[in-house]
Amino acid sequence: MALLELEGVEARYGQVRALHGISLAVEEGQVVALLGANGAGKTTTLRAVSGTVRRTGEIRFEGRSIVRGSPEGAARLGIAHVPEGRGTFAELSVWDNLRMGAFVRRNRRAVSADLERILVHFPWIEERRGQQAGTLSGGEQQMLALARALVARPRLLLLDEPSLGLAPLVVREFFGIVRMLNQEEGLTVLVVEQNANIALTVADRAYVLEVGEIAVSGSAEELRRNESVRRSYLGY
């Protein structure tokens, strides 16, 4: 049984239908990438999973239907969604941002143990814990958003365009951490990315969205070899 399954999911913003029946699956321990052009419905797919957009169809998480749930309900089930624009609490301190990540957790001791473990990947956070998060650079904010999501100890991590507006070096560092967490701790990730090159080096599987529908899917290896994917999204 897949950790996350979508079957015929539709979503709309007012009158505009953004998803026309999406079906996909994310297996436990996998990194799955959602690729596609602007407006293809990648972000909406993530929002449908976390419940921040109205949707119909069937969404199952650990076998249970969550299509009627709320965003806060999804968070409580262990879905951590790092939205487009990183969702930083700009006016709160860096440390309070991390504390927000742990909001759904009850065991305080486990949280501080996890914090220690997570901060190994982000050594600078400790020193700047009192700083207002809004004053961090884009790359730092993206790292903080990842750290915040990890403190929740998610069963599934949803990442929306993490590379947007970041320097290539930072993007590589970011995905390096994601891959390490995936390999060492079995973190399951569904990531939306414009930058298909880097996404396909990290992902196990990928889906290509076109105008609200899934056009191509397969293992990262298969997609890299696929002629049309190569031409449209990888650029060689």
């Binding site: 921040t52 806060e72 968070a75 951590a80 969702g87 609490f89 700009a90 709160l92 927000m100 909001f103």
Partner: peptide, 16 residues
Amino acid sequence: RAAAVNPESSRLAGVR
């Protein structure tokens, strides 16, 4: 405090 500055993100963090 979080809900006041960023309600959307707060919901994603599990805050009602």
